[in-house]
Design a protein around this nucleic acid. Structure first.
Lengths: 245, 245
DNA sequence: CAGTTTTGATAGCTTTACTATTAAAAACAA
DNA sequence: TTGTTTTTAATAGTAAAGCTATCAAAACTG
């Protein structure tokens, strides 16, 4: 497998000093991924990370203002990487259905990659995205973080997926919702399969988790995209009721 | 509006001492809701809560082991309350489609309630569920918490919704996923509309957020439930491709 | 009114999340 | 190669968070 050197463009507000530029920076990124995965984001801190990489807290603070920004940096990295992979994989494909199928594959996991990046373990980063991803924007600082462009990558990723959906059905009324939901649903159902199995229909006993997740996302995606709403309205027609008023 | 005294049955592992039983306990619950809403869960702590209710940290620790358990307590309260409302509202309804529509109304918001509970502000609690809900299970202690029954209410709520879905279409292959996804999607899209509008198709400019969320959830729910998969497979048929292998 | 339980007041301890200072090391330039 | 700048390490210190322990006062219970 080719080892392509990838340097993704990430929003400069996310760091104090670009961690992709120095050994220490790349070390911080590499080991923060491992350590967040080990400890969970709440128990993770810069002191423990410093010990692990035999550096100091103060040095890490020169790269990232705090651990929240580091998490968002990692997520941005992943979202950018997803976009690259979608572009790369769909470059010669015209059929939008094929494009969406491919995109769903990329949403679900990082398997079958055609490159590796030396200082990022993408499988572990994917676990972080699944387990800790929503913490990026579920904070009181969302609006400020959003203004600082912390979610630009996520939004443009969703836009990309939404545009593929619109290629399939230009009249589909909820492209953004479908896009963000495919991503969140994919993450949730993989997490649920492992930790809260009653909340998903994906089951270890049925075989490969990723494959089931892909089938599931396709089912919901095409169910929505091709939804026959005149038929649904007809089926639901008789009862023009007012809910609990 | 009737003021019905409701005491929900909540898992006893969630607290050290039942907060529904004492004035201080009810005060802790009431003001923790207000304070978490104000500060966000990260900045919220027992010391600040103690100041607010003119009590002490130590006293609060006698009710809840830590703030994480308090959050889960509040969420369980809300999930139980949703179940009560679903039961109450669908009690004389036989049409499962009508039941699901009602359920979607209840998922989206707490409007048009027929009761109020004195020590819980449900509108604010709903905001907490939307903004902080996923933090309940995105921790390293999920599996332990799950064993302690911290998510029983959520799971049985999903089961209830899934059963309604199966009433409509007994062959639907993803009832649990649809159930949990309707809840998470409802929460996400309301949150996105407010904070990250590019991630949803709900827009303030289009009018009432809740109504749009209800329409959206119905669209996706019935799209999935009535998905014509032979037709979809036919449309997608020609390309039996292997994604990026 | 005696006994039990609950609460409040106070203290203290460890960890987290930083900031500041200074010196050593590394990088780089003339 | 030496001098200069940048980067890192080492150390110290602070305020807040997240607890635990003790004891006395208050409140409720029989």
């Amino acid at each position: 497998m080719a080892k392509i050197s990838v340097k993704l463009d990430l929003n400069e507000n996310l760091f104090q000093k670009d961690p992709q530029e120095t050994d220490l920076g790349r070390n911080i990124v590499r080991h923060s991924i491992l350590l967040i995965d080990e400890l969970g984001f709440e128990k993770f801190n810069f002191k423990k990370l410093a010990e692990r990489i035999k550096s100091t807290e103060a040095s890490i603070y020169r790269y990232f203002e705090n651990k929240h920004n580091l998490l968002i940096y990692l997520l941005n990295w992943y979202w950018e990487w997803m976009k690259v992979r979608i572009d790369f994989n769909t470059i010669n494909i015209n059929d939008p259905i094929q494009k969406l199928d491919l995109t769903i594959n990329i949403i679900v996991d990082t398997a079958n990659r055609n490159t590796t990046i030396d200082f990022v373990d993408e499988d572990i980063l994917h676990r972080i995205v699944v387990a800790e991803g929503t913490k990026a924007y579920h904070t009181k600082s969302v609006d400020k973080d959003n203004q600082d462009g912390f979610f630009l990558s996520y939004k443009s990723l969703c836009k990309k997926v939404a545009d593929i959906v619109l290629e399939i059905n230009p009249h589909f009324p909820y492209p953004r919702t479908l896009a963000s939901n495919l991503i969140e649903m994919g993450n949730n159902n993989q997490y649920f399969a492992e930790h809260l199995p009653r909340l998903t229909d994906i089951q270890y006993s049925k075989g490969n988790i990723s494959e089931q997740a892909i089938e599931l996302l396709k089912y919901f995606a095409y169910g929505a995209i091709y939804a026959n709403h005149s038929k649904i309205k007809q089926k639901n027609g008789q009862m023009k009721f007012k809910p609990h008023s």
